[in-house]
């Protein structure tokens, strides 16, 4: 595999990551990115932010080199990382978000349960915000609220819908670690049940599902994981369904191969 030339990641025709049609659309599109502990999607998210802000995606698609100033706004809501984490990571992509007015970071990681959620009544306030229609919204690990509060999956989905209907494209990033088919219960308070319900209903709203998982065959030295881009329940004619494998080297370089 190492003898193959480096191959590029493309989500939409013709050769784009987040297409102009989506950004300029009046619709509200939703895509789901799922990962597990061994294969996190941070590298992909950095590139999606880069592509949203300036049209390029240096690390994953070498043909997208044309920089577009003010392509779109990005609002990033994270329940698992603080702003510093992304400031540092995005520097690898050549973006300093500290000085980018189109980038807004909402930190729901730092002191979430000390300052922001004191009782369950505070949860709706987290999602009470106005977004520009030409925004790409990222919500990272909102399922944390399902585990740590009495919030039901239906209610969380309603909160997410209230945000996603305001902007052109929403990415929900969630972990699939708790989906365990062998120990499934039908108790609505069970964490596995809540997550399964939440993700399945999200898939019924999405146009694109990106799934990162470790290799089924076990660990390999030259492959970190696989990435599958599949259609969601809402059709998009331009979506390119494909399977990739990727390798992140020790020095942080990324290589992508078609499967």
């Amino acid at each position: 595999m190492t003898s193959n030339p480096n191959q590029d990641l493309t989500f939409f025709k013709p050769n784009s990551i987040i297409s102009d049609d989506i950004i300029n659309s009046n619709n509200a599109y939703l895509s789901v990115i799922t990962n597990t502990q061994g294969v996190l999607s941070n590298w992909l998210i950095n590139s999606l932010i880069e592509n949203s802000l300036q049209g390029t995606a240096n690390l994953i698609n070498r043909d997208l080199t044309k920089k577009q100033l003010n392509r779109t706004k990005v609002t990033y809501i994270s329940f698992t990382n603080n702003k510093e984490f992304y400031v540092k990571n995005l520097k690898r992509n050549g973006i300093d978000v500290n000085f980018n007015q189109n980038f807004e970071f909402i930190d729901y990681f730092t002191n979430l349960f000390i300052n922001k959620i004191k009782t369950d009544e505070d949860i709706p306030k987290l999602f009470d915000m106005k977004l520009d229609p030409k925004t790409v919204l990222f919500v990272e690990n909102p399922e944390i609220l399902l585990y740590s509060t009495n919030l039901s999956s239906n209610r969380l989905l309603s909160h997410i819908l209230s945000l996603s209907k305001q902007c052109a494209q929403t990415f929900i990033i969630a972990s699939k670690d708790l989906i365990d088919m062998e120990n499934t219960t039908n108790d609505p308070q069970d964490l596995g049940f809540k997550l399964h319900d939440f993700l399945t209903k999200l898939y019924h709203r999405s146009i694109m599902n990106i799934n990162l998982q470790p290799l089924k065959t076990g660990r390999a030295k030259d492959i970190t994981g696989s990435l599958t881009v599949s259609k969601g329940s809402i059709p998009s004619n331009d979506l390119i369904e494909k399977e990739y494998v990727y390798n992140i080297t020790k020095d942080g370089n990324l290589k992508i191969y078609y499967r």
Partner: peptide
């Protein structure tokens, strides 16, 4: 069916087709 239950959606099987 097993893959779908684990929420792994396979590609290029003409799923969600017109």
């Amino acid at each position: 069916e097993n893959e779908i239950a684990k929420l792994n959606i396979p590609v290029n099987l003409k799923l969600n087709s017109p």
